[in-house]
Computed example of a mutant assay.
Amino acid sequence: MDFSAWMSAVQQRTESALERLLPAASLEPARLHEAMRYSTLGGGKRVRPLLCHGAGEIAGAAPDLLDAAACAVEMIHVYSLVHDDMPCMDDDVLRRGKPTCHVEFDEATALLVGDALQSLAFQTLAEAALPAPRLADMLRLLAHAAGSRGMAGGQAIDLAATGRALSLEELEFMHIHKTGALIRAAVLLGARCGNADEAAQQGLTQFANRVGLLFQVVDDILDAEASTATLGKTAGKDAANNKPTYVSLLGIVQAKQKAAELRAEAHHHLSPFGDRARRLHELTDYIVERTF
């Protein structure tokens, strides 16, 4: 199976799994469940589920276990987008090519959508058919990635940095948490669904650290160069809000050079896995070459 077909297959199985896991829109409270489905289904690149499945192939993980881990990470990701778009955060009106949750519904519903998706993520992972000690470790990993020392903490740093100049080290520290923590969790959860040993997990951690920063650098470049129609979200928002980015700090040319360096490092950390890392190699290239 070529990469395009594999990516489409993982995206489709993730969509189907999310469709099953999310409460029906007809189930009370119907408006909340409708908003959860509106925000989660029918959009997004599913990069985190793809990374989860790619790492799972290295570890020989069963696809149904990878579905549970992938959906749990994606629910956390979607909850973060719903909350990030709210007026108290980034105040955006467009996400994945359609009105953001608080615009389509209302702010209170959007807040509850994020809360409910976070809870459902942990329920989904907790119900996976894995040995209890490993499952506890995976739940702890996801909680850490989503919390104040991970994604939520990174968002807090981002909000505090608006209008303020950051050094490259400060910017990377922010994105290691805001973007990188959940990407790292996706990779490591995929590995732990299978039989990855400690050395393999360490190698995948090094890979995930690079690819998490790579994703953010490319995101900053796209925000500066692509159109709103292409991105499916408001283009140029970071510059308009005077937010620190790799482009504002380094300029477009050096930001692209940074992306090239991170891409090479990510590939390097996959070399010990040989052909088993084919999908992660392909995903690394896709993250750089994507246009939205």
Results as ranks from 00 to 15, higher is better:
residue 35 A to I: 09
residue 289 E to C: 01
residue 160 A to W: 11
residue 232 G to K: 04
residue 203 G to N: 10
residue 290 R to T: 02
residue 77 H to W: 00
residue 288 V to T: 00
residue 281 H to L: 07
residue 285 D to C: 06
residue 237 K to D: 13
residue 33 H to C: 03
residue 192 R to E: 06
residue 212 G to F: 01
residue 190 G to A: 04
residue 262 L to Y: 01
residue 51 L to D: 03
residue 154 G to C: 10
residue 7 M to F: 13
residue 183 I to D: 04
residue 155 Q to V: 08
residue 196 A to N: 00
residue 243 K to P: 10
residue 62 A to Q: 13
residue 132 A to K: 15
residue 281 H to R: 05
residue 75 M to S: 08
residue 36 M to E: 06
residue 11 Q to S: 15
residue 135 L to H: 05
residue 190 G to N: 00
residue 211 V to F: 01
residue 231 L to G: 06
residue 189 L to Y: 03
residue 180 G to H: 05
residue 212 G to E: 02
residue 241 N to S: 15
residue 40 T to I: 02
residue 22 L to Q: 09
residue 154 G to Y: 02
residue 229 A to H: 14
residue 275 D to W: 00
residue 188 L to Y: 07
residue 93 V to F: 11
residue 214 L to W: 00
residue 151 M to Y: 01
residue 69 A to I: 09
residue 158 D to W: 09
residue 240 A to H: 13
residue 220 D to A: 03
residue 193 C to W: 11
residue 243 K to D: 11
residue 247 V to S: 09
residue 267 H to R: 08
residue 113 V to K: 03
residue 155 Q to Y: 09
residue 269 H to P: 12
residue 226 A to I: 02
residue 292 F to Y: 05
residue 238 D to S: 07
residue 72 A to M: 08
residue 290 R to Y: 00
residue 103 V to A: 13
residue 45 K to P: 02
residue 197 D to W: 15
residue 292 F to D: 12
residue 254 Q to K: 09
residue 196 A to E: 00
residue 33 H to R: 04
residue 43 G to V: 02
residue 260 A to T: 00
